[in-house]
Design a protein around this nucleic acid. Structure first.
Length: 848
RNA sequence: GGGCGUGUAGCUCAGUUGGUCAGAGCACCCGCCUUACAAGCGGGCGGUCGGAGGUUCGAGUCCUCUCGCGCCCA
């Protein structure tokens, strides 16, 4: 026990000690009932950890530590999400390379010594992935160091990365099984498309942003009648117009239904149709349908069975050839002026053409409206018809949707109201999950296509590998029965060029961590997992996708409980996010206040509750940690460092009272943890501890020094029992200081000790009544108050104290302690019917 | 526009199923070197619970409306 306990260096000391002792190692010999498994969120390693990570990962760690002490073997792995676009960018910049899937693998490749971002060296996908592996391995070390410093009780032998061999194999295996069962399919369909990244994006990655735009009023012509006026924000899509549409109940347009009109400038004849989604209140009540301006166009196109006349290409530019149906010479000439232009330029040109022809009615009226963006993109999404892979998710199938909603109801949510986010998302899906991305760094689809005699891929006859061959890279490996020489030649084969969406891999995190099909023994023991901790922002993505995969593959939930952490708000109560630039990194805070202190702040935030970054709370945590050091040192120095206190020695009513109160705290804290309310467990423990220091410790100080009497032995035994409980109760929250003080008088780590059981303390408390301590402390407080008001030292003598009221008897049970702690000469107790305890304090004449 | 959440002392937050529920910590003020802790200890000031109705013997605690804030979805 140190002379002057301190928090300095406590993190390094215990991080090393825990690593050496392996106290957090998962014991895989235990059966499923004795295991608590956690599907830890894999943080994105291409970014940096921020204080929000510390917040939610601390929540999980308190649960892990509680469960471990509660007798469970805790399976607590850590993953790194290095798969996807953010890493792709980071590797490009870091090494000065870029991925070109057409290049062959070079086993001897070394990256440029001096990376030049402007002259990136093209390399094969396999080389690129190797660099990703190399860089992320370094990044992961940094992350692991921070997590260890924070005190996460992860078993560092169980880590995975979403791009490593096991993850790629798992993602490909799951996909092949989805494919075999018909849960995955390829389709050529209108797809939301980011023109910057030139990739498809999924519904879950969309984001609405308000953008300035303008309604343009256009005149469509018809033979022998007034022109039909429509309003559109996208006049450049006029050549892609396939119909006009109005609401079937709209009397203004009923006469036109079934007739045709001609588009201005381009002179294409299109039908006027009726559809319920046409809003009579919007604009003129009649709209043009283009292929494709927005998702409503896609609905109309599908339901009204309209032709496809796309004009926007993968690069976001107007394609060279005019669409079918645009046949007039004037129309083709007009179109020629648009070919190759960006959407923006095309709009200006079409408006110009409309002005010339007189078909633009009035001036465009400016508006602001929400436009769909890829969440990582900065140009509006276009809709392009492409061939993509999908996984069914209930977006087009009521049966699957209902089954997934039922899974959501099976899951225990903390807090419970988070379930509604899941339900709304699942209920609002409007299509299946698009999982293919036209990117390089990700898990490739394990699929090849035979080429016919003309060299065209036979998409309907995909070639798949055996599961034992996984992971495969179809861009650098030939399928079974083919040689590399047959790649890309007629009669040969071609690899699927796409990679899977990151979520298609991370949605398998429980399977990846649990050794699905790789370590069946482990899988049996930990899956389905107990807890999925995560943020509320990714319920619709990560949580939902994980449920989908598990539902199809295992016919079960992937875990029984979801614990959803809230946001971290900056001091101005704004959500902390990279894009807002208000992100705080944790390192400085950990150093300034200590890891325990930062954890204290984090643990003060309940699941699902947004919490402000509050250094004041960290200060409080630091003080608590220091107080635990000091109080423990004091108690141990008075009571001796006997590691096995004798409950039978606790005979004094005050001591038994304290232990009875402690038993209540243990009961409460245990129940709170079991209900995923870690904050309540902390609050109860902390409250008890401060009261113990302020009142009980002061009351028994003198008595505890008395080594002659049974009363002294009673105090010392009670102190040790309380200390033993408190060290363990604080362990999930303040693991460093808890193990430090535990080590002063106990063998082994507190983190391997048994969680305090209520019975243990009820037995020691015997007939103890918490009211005794409460009443006694109240008397002591009254004495202090009198001294404080008289501006006296707490050591000042008191002539006489008289206590009256119902509780006087309780307080009287510890009269010698009151006399000693308050330095009271004469002490009188009068039990009366007064509910209130009244304390009269007579100070020496001189002081009054 | 819809959904979910939230609004309690200057600040950060507790307040189970309606009846000592008006609390804690921080901050502030006044004291105290009391041999575990002065990065300590003791004491005190401070809000009628966003607003308006309603149910009830009784409502931060239930209902309705309303205002503000956050997030998600349109």
């Amino acid at each position: 026990m140190p002379e002057k306990p301190s928090l300095d260096g406590i993190e390094a000391k215990w991080v090393d000690a825990w690593d050496e002792s392996g106290v957090y190692h998962f014991d895989r010999s235990r059966s499923r009932e004795e295991i608590f498994s956690i599907d830890t969120p894999p943080p994105t390693v291409s970014g940096s950890l921020h204080i929000g990570h510390v917040f939610s990962y601390t929540h999980t760690d308190t649960v892990a530590r509680f469960q471990r002490m509660n007798g469970k073997a805790v399976f607590y792995p850590m993953g790194w999400d290095d798969n996807g676009l953010p890493t792709e960018r980071r590797v490009q910049n870091y090494y000065g390379v870029r991925c070109d899937p057409s290049i062959a693998y070079d086993p001897d490749f070394t990256p440029p010594a001096k990376p030049d971002a402007k002259r990136q060296v093209p390399i094969s996908r396999r080389n690129f992935i190797e660099l990703c592996d190399r860089l992320t391995a370094e990044d992961e070390k940094v992350f692991e160091g921070i997590w260890r410093t924070l005190g996460l009780s992860v078993d560092w032998r169980h880590t995975y990365a979403t791009i490593d061999d096991n993850s790629r194999a798992a993602a490909q295996r799951a996909f092949l099984r989805n494919l075999a069962r018909g849960e995955a399919y390829m389709a050529e369909a209108p797809t939301l498309w980011d023109v910057t990244f030139r990739t498809a994006v999924a519904q879950a990655e969309l984001e609405d942003r308000d953008r300035p735009s303008a309604y343009h009023k256009l005149a469509f012509h018809r033979d022998g009648g007034e022109p039909v006026l429509i309003e559109t924000t996208r006049p450049e899509l006029l050549p892609a117009c396939v119909a006009l549409v109005a609401n079937p109940d709209d009397e203004r347009y009923q006469p036109l239904f079934g007739s045709t009109v001609r588009t201005p400038v381009f002179g294409v004849e299109v039908p006027v149709l009726a559809h319920r989604l046409a809003d009579p209140e919007k604009g003129s009540g009649i709209a043009m349908i283009c292929t494709f301006g927005d998702l409503t166009d896609v609905t109309w196109w599908r339901e009204l069975q309209l032709p496809t006349r796309p004009i926007v290409g993968w690069d976001g530019r107007i394609v060279a050839d005019p669409p079918a149906g645009l046949e007039s010479e004037a129309g083709r000439d007009a179109y020629a002026t648009l070919a190759g232009a960006t959407v923006h330029t095309a709009r200006e040109r079409v408006v110009g053409l409309l002005r010339e022809s007189g078909d633009l009615i009035g001036e465009p009226s400016k508006i602001t409206h929400p436009v769909k963006f890829y969440e990582k993109g900065d140009k509006p999404l276009e809709i392009v018809t492409t061939r993509q892979w999908y996984i069914r998710n209930g977006g087009r199938d009521a049966g699957v949707r209902e089954a997934l909603l039922e899974r959501g109801r099976e899951l225990a949510w903390h807090p419970a109201h988070m379930r509604s986010r899941y339900e709304h998302w699942v209920g609002g899906l409007n299509g299946d999950w698009l999982i293919s991305r036209q990117r390089f760094f990700g898990v490739p689809f394990p699929v090849w296509y035979p080429l016919d005699a003309e060299g065209n891929p036979r998409y309907d006859e995909p070639i798949t590998p055996a599961e034992s061959a996984l992971p495969v890279d179809p861009s650098s490996e030939a399928p079974e029965g083919y040689t590399e020489a047959q790649r890309g030649v007629p009669g040969g084969f071609t690899g699927d060029p796409d990679v899977m969406d990151t979520w298609a891999t991370s949605s398998l995190s429980p399977q990846i961590a649990a050794g699905w099909e790789r370590d069946p023994d482990l899988f049996e023991r930990v899956f389905p997992m107990d807890l999925r901790p995560q943020g509320q922002d990714i319920i619709r993505t990560w949580l939902f996708a994980t449920v989908v995969r598990s539902h199809f593959e295992h016919g079960s939930l992937p875990w029984s409980t979801a614990g959803i952490s809230g946001w971290i708000l900056d001091p101005d109560r704004k959500k902390m996010s990279k894009s807002k630039g208000n992100v705080v990194t944790p390192i400085d805070l950990l150093q300034k206040y200590s890891s325990d202190a930062v954890r204290y702040w984090a643990a003060s935030g309940r699941l699902g509750t947004d919490t402000a970054l509050d250094e004041g709370q960290m200060k409080v945590g630091r003080r608590l940690a220091i107080k635990i050091l000091n109080a423990s040192k004091f108690a141990l120095s008075v009571a001796g460092e006997t590691s096995v206190p004798d409950p039978a020695a606790v005979t004094e009513p005050l001591d038994r009272s304290m232990l009875a109160a402690l038993a209540d705290v243990v009961e409460d804290a245990t129940a709170a943890f079991e209900g995923y309310d870690h904050t309540r467990a902390l609050e109860r423990t902390e409250r008890f501890f401060w009261d113990l220091c302020d009142d009980y410790l002061e009351l028994v100080k003198t008595r505890a020094y008395d080594t002659e009497s049974a009363a002294g032995a009673s105090a010392r035994a009670a102190l040790l029992i309380a200390l033993s409980a408190l060290h363990r109760l604080f362990a999930p929250f303040l693991p460093f200081v808890a193990d430090e003080v535990w080590s002063w008088w106990q063998d082994g780590s507190v983190h391997a000790a048994a969680w305090p059981s209520t019975g243990e303390f009820r037995a020691a408390a015997g007939d103890g009544d918490p009211a005794v301590l409460t009443a006694t402390a109240e008397v002591l407080r009254a004495v202090r108050k009198a001294k404080s008001e008289a501006k006296l030292s707490m050591r000042a003598e008191v002539d006489r104290v008289v206590v009256r009221g119902k509780q006087a008897e309780n307080a009287g049970l510890s009269r010698t302690d009151i006399a000693a702690a308050g330095r009271v000469g004469e002490l009188g107790f009068e039990t009366s019917d007064d509910a209130e305890l009244r304390v009269e304090v007579s100070l020496p004449e001189a002081a009054e």
